[in-house]
């Protein structure tokens, strides 16, 4: 029994990290209906920045905060350079330019930090915590808590603040929103910045949990975030959260039954099944797609 709970806790920890990465991804999608292929690469660079700042001797919290800000800045840069000029083109164009921006970021990061896997310092203590007779790892719980707080905050921000409502207007109709006096460019840049900020927070947790920062993390994070967002219902925040958790649990179940080598195969098969039954994801709404 303990064994299954331990695996459950592993799954939830991995899932919470996916959820946080998927959140930034979903945010951009929900406003712009755009698959942001650069997201994973932006947050990979953010994780490297966090590592560099920590190695330079900065205390953990300012280092991570600055790295998240760096992630926001890079996301804004990507928006300015790779998205804005092609915003009104066919939907496939910004997707390709995003992928290009991501590859440029990956190549740049490889030039600076090299292709090796780097170790990342353990900043969250990992001790057994007993809740109602069940022993869980403190790290899993803290990661889950951080992820829950950030998801709730992002959701509140988008649904309850003036800025969030303006962002939703941009989502509904970009041209009309502009005519109504909403500063569309500012809103879009801010959405990217928040996505980058949250994504880097997820990437730092990822680096801490796996004790590794590496270039391919960019592609890995993009595919996991995409899968989690699709599973939960792309564009929905609670969907991204639950999608992430479910993906983490599915992966852990795959490792337990079929072996680690089949992790992605089994977990992606589950996602395909879910999408066959519910094409808009578990929490998505049928009208999410805009033509």
């Amino acid at each position: 029994m303990d064994y299954y709970l331990e695996q459950l806790s592993n799954g939830i920890a991995v899932g919470s990290i996916y959820a946080l990465i998927a959140l930034g991804y979903s945010l951009v999608y929900s406003i712009l209906n755009l698959i942001n292929f650069a997201h994973g690469y932006v947050i990979m660079v953010g994780a490297f920045v966090a590592l560099a700042l920590l190695q330079a001797g900065l205390p953990a919290i300012p280092a991570i905060f600055l790295a998240c800000c760096a992630g926001a800045l890079i996301a804004m840069g990507v928006e300015r350079i790779a998205y804005r000029p092609v915003r009104h083109s066919n939907r496939i164009v910004p997707m390709i330019s995003a992928l290009g921006a991501g590859l440029v970021l990956a190549a740049g990061a490889q030039l600076i930090w090299g292709p090796e896997v780097h170790a990342f310092p353990q900043l969250i203590p990992r001790v057994p915590v007993e809740i109602g007779g069940v022993t869980l790892s403190s790290q899993s719980l803290i990661i889950l808590a951080i992820s829950l707080v950030l998801v709730a905050a992002a959701s509140w921000f988008l649904h309850r603040t003036r800025f969030g409502i303006a962002a939703q207007c941009v989502c509904q109709d970009l041209a009309t929103a502009q005519l109504m006096g909403i500063p569309v460019n500012l809103i879009i840049v801010a959405v990217y910045a928040i996505g980058g900020f949250l994504g880097v927070a997820g990437a730092v947790l990822f680096a801490m949990y796996f004790n590794a920062v590496f270039i391919q993390m960019g592609l890995l994070a993009t595919t996991k975030a995409w899968a989690a967002a699709m599973l939960g219902g792309i564009g929905s925040f609670s969907g991204a959260f639950w999608g992430g958790i479910l993906l983490g649990l599915a992966e852990t179940a795959a490792v337990m039954t079929a072996g680690s080598a089949y992790r992605d195969g089994v977990s992606l098969a589950i996602i395909v099944l879910v999408l066959l039954l519910k094409p808009n994801g578990l929490f998505g709404t049928a009208s999410a797609e805009r033509s």
């Binding site: 695996q7 592993n10 991995v14 796996f210 490792v255 680690s260 080598a261 992790r263 992605d264």
Partner: peptide, 13 residues
Amino acid sequence: AGFTPNLDKDFSS
């Protein structure tokens, strides 16, 4: 336990 070299980074389970 087998893992996919150069891809798997999560060994927790």
